[in-house]
Design a protein around this nucleic acid. Structure first.
Length: 492
RNA sequence: GUCCCCGUCGUCUAGCCCGGCCUAGGACACCGCCCUUUCACGGCGAUAACACGGGUUCAAAUCCCGUCGGGGACGCCA
C-alpha cells in the first residue's frame, strides 16, 4: 500500500474526498478545483479519495457520475484511493485509540428513528453509564457479543481548549467539554466518517485539508482524533458555502439538476469557463481580472484570496444558469480558435439531428462564434446551414423596413439575375449585391433583408455575404426562388 | 435550544488586517447612446451598496460594543 509519508519536503498534499451518494455537484466541484489549484500552485500532490463508507447510500452509478464530472473539468489528480478498501486501517487506528484509553465502548442501542433527541434540549454530550463503565465490564459485555459503538472519550475535566488556525477563517477555538463523545466505530464495526477521514488523512500524509465551511465545527473533533492517533494535525482551510438564491445551502435534493456538473456540460459550457466561474464564487485575484485561463488561475490562487461570506449562485426555474457563468462562457468561446471550437460544436448538431460534416461545421463556426453563449446555442444559430429544407416562415418577414412586398419582390428577382453570374465568395457577393442595391435606388439594409430572410429563413442571422458563401450558389438560388414564390402568393 | 461563521450595488466582488488618497472601484444583469446590411461583437454612458444603533477619533466601509438579519454544525450520514 502506498504508505507514502509526507516526507521531509514541505510540498503540500491535498485531497478531494467526495462521497458517492449522487452526481458531482457544483459545490463539490468548486472544492475540488480549489484543492487542485492549491496543489498545482504550490507544486504539491492532488489526492482523490472516494469516501464510500456509507454502504447504504453509495452506488456504482454515482461513482461513475463523479468521475464523469471530474474528467469533464479536465483537472487531473496524482493518486487515487477508496476508503472502502482501507477498512482494516481504520479499525486498527480505532483500536489504537481505544488501547490508549481515549475511547470507550457504548452499548446503548443505536437510534432507530430519525428523530434526534439532541436538537431541542441543548447539547447532548454522552450516554450516561457508558463513559464511566469499568474496563472489566466493558470487556465482558463485548466478549458476550453485545453490540457497541466506539466513542471518543472527549476530555471534559481540565478545562481543555481546542484550537487551530484556519487558512480562511483565522483563529478558531472551543472548550473541549462542549464537544460530544462522537462515534469512531458504529455498532456494525464500520468506521464513521470522522474516523475514516482522519485516519486516511493521517495515513496518506495529507498536509492541507481544504473543504466546505460546513465542516468548520467538525474540525474540533478531527483535532481530537489526530491527537488520539498521535500525529500532528494538518492545516485546515474552510471554504465559504455556495448557496441557492434563497440563501440556503445548495442541495441535490432541494435544487435538483441545476446543481449537477453534468447539467452545465450538457448545456454547452466549456470546462475552462465553468472552472473560471466557480473560482470567482468565494475567491478573487483582487486585481479586477475576471476572465482567467487555468494557468492564470493557478498562478493567482492563494488561500488569502478566499472570502468568508457565502456566495449565491443564481438560477431560476426558467433560467437554470447564473448569468455571469453564461457571460464567462461566451467570453471563453470567443477566445477559442475556430479549429478548436468547431469540433466541440459537432456533437451538438448531431444530437439535434442534423447531418453535418466536420468541414461544414468548420466553415460555419466563425459565423456563429460571436453569437452563441452556450455551445448548444450553435444549433439554433446555424440550423439553416444544415437544413435541406427551410422551416416555413411568414413571407411578410421578407419585406424590408420602409418597404413593401413589391420592393422585396424586385430585390429577389434582381438577385436571381445577378447571382448566377458571379463568384460565390465574400468580396464578389459584397460587390454585386451592393451594386444591385444602388442600381435599384435602395439602401443596403433594405436590399439585403429580403435576401437574408430568403436564404436563412429569418431576420436575425450572421452577416449575409459570408453566409451565402458558405451556403453556396445552388442552395441560395433555390431558397430565393422559393421566397419569390411565397411573396407572389402573398401579393395575390 | 446550544455553539460557530458571515453581513459593501439585485448578484459576484475590490477596499477592511496597517482608519484619511472612498463624493466606495471593477464585473454580470438591466436601461440608453454609438458602430453597423439584421443579429451579435465592440465602444461609451446611466441607475444601483458600506444591515442598523451606539461609541473611540480631528477623521470610520475600515477599530470597539450592542442589535437585527442570514447561514452552518450539533447522528452508530458524509
Amino acid at each position: 500500500m502506498p504508505d507514502s509519508a509526507p516526507s521531509a519536503a514541505k510540498t503540500p498534499r491535498v485531497r478531494f474526498a467526495p462521497s458517492p451518494t449522487g452526481f458531482l455537484h457544483v459545490g463539490s466541484a468548486r472544492t475540488f478545483i480549489f484543492n487542485w489549484l492549491y496543489a498545482r500552485h504550490n507544486h504539491g500532490t492532488m489526492v482523490l479519495r472516494l469516501d464510500d463508507t456509507d454502504l447504504e447510500r453509495n452506488t456504482e452509478a454515482s461513482v461513475q457520475s463523479i468521475f464523469e464530472g471530474l474528467r469533464w473539468l479536465g483537472l487531473d489528480w496524482d493518486e487515487e484511493y477508496k476508503q472502502s478498501s482501507r477498512l482494516d486501517l481504520h479499525r486498527r487506528q480505532a483500536e489504537a485509540i481505544f488501547a490508549k484509553g481515549l475511547a470507550y465502548r457504548d452499548f446503548t442501542p443505536a437510534h432507530a428513528g430519525d428523530d434526534n433527541q439532541s436538537s431541542a434540549q441543548g447539547a447532548w454530550l454522552f450516554n450516561p453509564g457508558m463513559r464511566e463503565m469499568s474496563r472489566e465490564e466493558s470487556d465482558r459485555r463485548a466478549a458476550s457479543g453485545e453490540p457497541f459503538a466506539l466513542r471518543y472519550r472527549v476530555p471534559r475535566d481540565q478545562g481543555r481548549n481546542l484550537s487551530f488556525t484556519d487558512g480562511v477563517y483565522g483563529e478558531q477555538s472551543k472548550p473541549a467539554d462542549e464537544v460530544e463523545d462522537f462515534a469512531l466505530l458504529r455498532s456494525d464495526s464500520f468506521p464513521t466518517y470522522h474516523l475514516a477521514s482522519c485516519a486516511d488523512d493521517a495515513d496518506l500524509g495529507i498536509t492541507h485539508i481544504i473543504r466546505g465551511q460546513d465542516h468548520l465545527t467538525n474540525t474540533f473533533k478531527h483535532l481530537l482524533i489526530f491527537e488520539g492517533l498521535g500525529v500532528q494535525p494538518p492545516q485546515f482551510a474552510h471554504l465559504p458555502l455556495l448557496v441557492a438564491p434563497d440563501g440556503a445551502k445548495l442541495s441535490k435534493r432541494k435544487h435538483g439538476a441545476v446543481v449537477s456538473v453534468t447539467t452545465y456540460r450538457d448545456a454547452g459550457f466549456l470546462p475552462q469557463a465553468f472552472v473560471n466561474f466557480l473560482c470567482l464564487l468565494g475567491w478573487s485575484p483582487k486585481d479586477d481580472r475576471e476572465f482567467l485561463s487555468l494557468d492564470e488561475l493557478t498562478a493567482a490562487f492563494t488561500l488569502e484570496g478566499v472570502n468568508r461570506a457565502n456566495a449565491v449562485i443564481n438560477f431560476t426555474d426558467a433560467d437554470p444558469f447564473d448569468p455571469k457563468a453564461v457571460w464567462l462562457n461566451a467570453e471563453h468561446i470567443r477566445a477559442l480558435p475556430v479549429d478548436e471550437l468547431a469540433p466541440l460544436l459537432g456533437p451538438f448538431f448531431s444530437r439535434g439531428g442534423f447531418e453535418t460534416t466536420p468541414e461544414k461545421v468548420l466553415a460555419v463556426t466563425p459565423l456563429i462564434r460571436e453569437r452563441i453563449k452556450l455551445l448548444r446555442d450553435a444549433v439554433s444559430a446555424a440550423d439553416f446551414f444544415f437544413l435541406p429544407q427551410l422551416a416555413p416562415y411568414d413571407p411578410a418577414e421578407l419585406i424590408p423596413q420602409k418597404g413593401d412586398a413589391a420592393m422585396a419582390l424586385r430585390v429577389l428577382q434582381h438577385a436571381l439575375e445577378v447571382l448566377p453570374a458571379i463568384n460565390f465568395d465574400h468580396d464578389s457577393l459584397d460587390q454585386a449585391l451592393r451594386a444591385a442595391a444602388s442600381h435599384m435606388g435602395l439602401k443596403a439594409g433594405q436590399a439585403f433583408q429580403p435576401i437574408r430572410v430568403a436564404v436563412c429563413g429569418r431576420k436575425n442571422a450572421p452577416p449575409l455575404f459570408e453566409t451565402m458563401a458558405v451556403l453556396g450558389r445552388d442552395v441560395c438560388l433555390a431558397r430565393i426562388r422559393q421566397a419569390e414564390a411565397s411573396l407572389q402568393s402573398l401579393a395575390v
